[in-house]
Write a protein that binds this DNA or RNA. Structure first.
Lengths: 195, 195
DNA sequence: TCCGTTTTGGAGAGGTCTCTCTATTTAATT
DNA sequence: AATTAAATAGAGAGACCTCTCCAAAACGGA
């Protein structure tokens, strides 16, 4: 009943991810996305009502893909200590196999215009974060955390620490060294040893 | 012998820092800087030959101010373990008292157009980083590190970890909680305990 | 007082980006 | 074959930004 799409949403988002990874969020212009897939700019506006809608979607799709795998690892193991270390290791391993998406995520949602997102998109981002933090808080409780400060330390050990390790290497444009997973796992275990 | 300056370099850089902290590096346009200090755009170009020269200078001045204090703390104490913990604590404390500059630094040099800097400016950035990493490597050696992987762990504990803690709170626009310094110090000490 | 130098003040050329609008194409359905 | 909904194709208006250029202003020194 209608002409079949030639430049569909995911194709445009793929191009946007590539552009963001190479030149940062500022390089993701509607014109650049259109050019990257060989479409006129009008076709991009046919899929996304505005640039900030596109930016939001690029961010959300990427972060949701990451969080899906991360939460799965977090809840896979029965032993909370093992789950924690596996999660930390997973962050590094995922970054290794998803270089462009990692480079994108390291910029953070603000760089993708978070302030201008639609309420629905902002809520999607919040929901993902709530879900993630909820799991981490539950794990922290299993590990014996009783004060908010202890829960924060668990979050630091499970998310921020491996991310910091990844950032150090990816920001310089380099590859992650082979021992990065081990370093992340060891560091996380150490931070949780004294909870 | 000449007309006295009305908008001097540091005044323009101050405005640029404010703009970057509020709206990210993209908000630092020549027009915005000029407007912020009430000058015509020509006066900004009188001080800086191009936008990227301004961006580089904003970044360099800020990062050099931070590194100055950090290196001082790092080398102040005789005991390497104490120096390490003090350095970690200093990162958090400095962030608390320098909110705008912290927000700026968290974006990283690439966001300030590092690729387009002049060779002299790029070298200034490199020299600062070499100096900092040199001190950390020396401290790592004092702490008993023998392999590069161990030195990396020290860098993680002394720089990336406290920065990650700061990032978590500042990125959301919030204030650092009162116990942040303590958490940074404890975490750093734990990571170094098993070197 | 006059000169030389630095700086201001401001207009505007040229480029890029966002977004709009309309005409045309395409293929499934009738 | 005619109809119809969805999608492409592309031109262009309007905003903003970088950077240039030149005249006017302000001060110290001769």
């Amino acid at each position: 009943m209608a002409r079949p799409p030639r430049y569909d949403t995911s194709l445009l988002l793929d191009a946007a991810v590539r552009l963001a990874a190479e030149g940062g969020p500022a390089a993701v212009t509607m014109a650049a996305v259109a050019k990257a897939v060989g479409a006129p700019s009008g076709s991009v506006y046919h899929r996304f009502p505005s640039r900030s809608a596109l930016m939001a979607e690029v961010w959300l799709r990427t972060v949701e893909r990451f969080q899906e795998g991360y939460v799965a690892v977090l809840t896979a193991s029965g032993d909370p200590g093992q789950a924690a270390v596996a999660a930390s290791r997973h962050v590094v391993a995922w970054s290794r196999t998803h270089r462009e998406e990692t480079a994108l995520l390291l910029h953070g949602p603000e760089a993708f215009g978070r302030g201008a997102w639609s309420p629905e998109q902002a809520e999607r981002a919040d929901a993902g974060n709530r879900r993630l933090f909820g799991r981490i808080a539950a794990l922290a409780a299993e590990l014996g955390a009783r004060h908010p400060a202890q829960t924060e330390r668990v979050a630091l050990a499970l998310v921020d620490l491996p991310l910091a390790l990844v950032r150090r290497h990816v920001r310089g444009g380099g590859l992650l060294p082979a021992h990065a997973e081990q370093l992340a796992a060891d560091s996380t275990a150490l931070l949780l040893s004294d909870l």
